[in-house]
């Protein structure tokens, strides 16, 4: 079909796919961070939140499938484009290779992407499936009893007294290993670098960027990425220095 061919075979089409999936992935990682930051509050919060998410059942699977599809498409497009781009360059390299002005982050999109992918795999093994550190995995540690109700948009979704998995303890104990924490910190750092170019670049790809507001866009993206990085850094950081108990 025309549509499929124009989107999946053309360079611009695949970039559009990367941009759109990128938006979804950004929405996820930002939402995920906001949820995770509840770890700094009462254990009721994050444990209630995790319980609520688990209780969504089919809806959770729907979201997971969408996310998986996005990651797959994003990576597929990224890799096929990278191969095309390399082929386009030709066999004879320049003797003098120079960058004129390309942004630092833009030069390492592939590398940062691959490390983020490796991170995601490890991370799911770690906190979702429980194969990385089974001893501290949420199903293998004492359950937690909710002290009060957990609300989402004013609706009570988890009642006080419910017994739930102790995700908070899992996270804190999971980060007790400094190597694991360090890997997380490096990974979120690289993800932030990936986004530093990605979040700006997607506007260009979607045709929403021009000189009149490119400065502003870059400012917002830089600030956003810095905030995202610090937020993510805070969790393993706090855990490893013992601030989280």
């Amino acid at each position: 079909m025309e549509l499929g061919r124009n989107l999946f075979c053309s360079t611009i089409g695949r970039k559009l796919i990367m941009a759109v999936t990128g938006v979804v992935l950004i929405a996820f990682v930002v939402g995920h961070l906001v949820g995770n930051l509840q770890v700094f509050e009462d254990p009721d919060r994050i444990n209630g939140y995790a319980h609520f998410l688990q209780s969504l059942g089919p809806a959770l699977w729907a979201v997971r499938i969408v996310l998986l599809a996005c990651v797959t498409l994003h990576i597929w497009a990224g890799i096929t484009l990278a191969l095309d781009d390399r082929r386009a360059r030709g066999d004879e390299p320049y003797a003098v290779n120079r960058w004129i002005q390309a942004a630092f982050a833009s030069r390492y999109m592939r590398s940062t992407g691959y490390i983020v992918l490796a991170f995601i795999i490890y991370h799911i093994a770690h906190f979702t499936v429980g194969v990385a550190q089974p001893a501290t995995f949420k199903t293998n540690i004492a359950h937690y009893t909710m002290k009060g109700d957990y609300h989402v948009l004013g609706v009570t979704v988890v009642r006080g007294g419910t017994e739930v998995l102790d995700v908070r303890s899992m996270v804190i104990r999971g980060f007790e290993n400094p190597l694991v924490s360090l890997f997380y910190m490096v990974a979120v750092g690289l993800l932030s670098v990936h986004l530093l170019h990605g979040a700006d670049s997607l506007f260009q790809t979607l045709g929403l960027r021009n000189h009149r507001w490119e400065r502003f866009l870059q400012l917002v993206v830089t600030a956003g990425c810095a905030a995202y990085f610090l937020g993510n850094l805070a969790i393993p950081g706090a855990a490893v220095v013992g601030l989280l108990k």
Binding site: T11, A88, Q101, A102, A103, S106, L206, G207, N210
Partner: peptide, 28 residues
């Protein structure tokens, strides 16, 4: 030809300084 990864080396090397804004416009 390869795809664009929005690095803007092209507009910097362009003797007519054609803006990469036009790339965004074409994407749209």
């Amino acid at each position: 030809f390869g795809g664009c990864t929005n690095q803007y080396e092209c507009s910097a090397a362009c003797p007519k300084l054609i803006s990469h804004d036009f790339i965004a416009r074409m994407n749209r």
